[in-house]
Design a protein around this nucleic acid. Structure first.
Lengths: 157, 157
DNA sequence: CGGCGATTGTATGCAGTGCAAACAAATAGG
DNA sequence: CCTATTTGTTTGCACTGCATACAATCGCCG
């Protein structure tokens, strides 16, 4: 019962399935966006119960790895500007996963620390991350994963 | 209290430069997000003058490739829901790059067409896309580009 | 043929993210 | 000491994603 609409413009010499998108399919940026979207959706599903976003998990992870890190440093490592970093820190602080302290060495900076609850949540998040990673990696060999990581890293420097 | 925060967790066998992010660096989803972010930023710069987003260009491109396409079909091909598709179509229509017509074969559907101005803008956009693509591809060999596209496609099916 | 469920478009609201501008507090450097 | 810079903060705007609700239309089945 599915109506095919491919019949009126079947001119492009590419595969034509239900989701043929023509020459835009050759644009690498387009594939990066689609792949990111697919990842984002699966991540959101996986973290629905924990109610955490990618950024929030990344921030907690980094704060755990680097206690007393400043917001600006955090933002630079995750490629976020100060305003975006603020939003995320505020949210995590409101949920008592993280706390701000005045940096003793630089009065401008805030020193960030996970709370005990934050540590607990991060532990659960890391388990969910593993599940999410397996979802991504399930379609690749180990060598392909290595290659993909290497190529992606070259894009974001 | 430490001045440097790198010294207390130098256990992960990864490079440690100014933007070391520790074990999170081994998460493939993280690299996809960073790569997407880098692409997004460069795209935004490249299209600042044309004032177009990735989605808007994708939509115009697809409407041009598939005249009389419906909104739902467009959304499925670009992995967007109806509400998001609406927003983009509305914006493009308000700028007179695109027009809606009632589908003659299905009263529920809208048939989408580019206007003459839309065609013109799409032409300019495709040039900008080429520039953007070159920015991405400049760090890869042709074989690597092919590999990357193939691996990315496997993520979003 | 008629009614009912499914599809499509539309409108509204909420949340996450990105970016810019402006301001205050503190630091760094001459 | 004075000035420029850094850092955090706030505010506002825009794009995107998702959920919900509603109306019009279509397809299918009795």
């Amino acid at each position: 019962m599915r109506v095919r609409d491919d019949d009126l413009d079947a001119v492009t010499p590419v595969d034509h399935d239900d989701t043929d998108i023509g020459e835009i399919n050759e644009i690498i940026g387009f594939h990066i966006r689609l792949a990111h979207g697919a990842c984002y959706r699966h991540f959101t599903e996986t973290f629905a119960e924990l109610d955490l976003t990618q950024k929030q998990v990344s921030v907690m992870w980094l704060v755990d790895d680097h206690p007393a890190i400043s917001q600006i440093d955090l933002g630079q490592r995750l490629r976020m500007d100060r305003a975006t970093t603020m939003t995320i820190i505020n949210r995590l602080q409101a949920r008592h996963f993280l706390r701000r302290e005045k940096s003793p060495t630089d009065g401008r900076k805030q020193a960030l620390f996970l709370t005990a609850e934050g540590e607990k949540v991060l532990g659960a998040a890391k388990l969910a991350i593993r599940e999410h990673e397996n979802w991504v990696k399930s379609r690749f060999t180990d060598a392909e994963v290595k290659t993909l990581m290497e190529l992606l890293a070259r894009i974001h420097e």
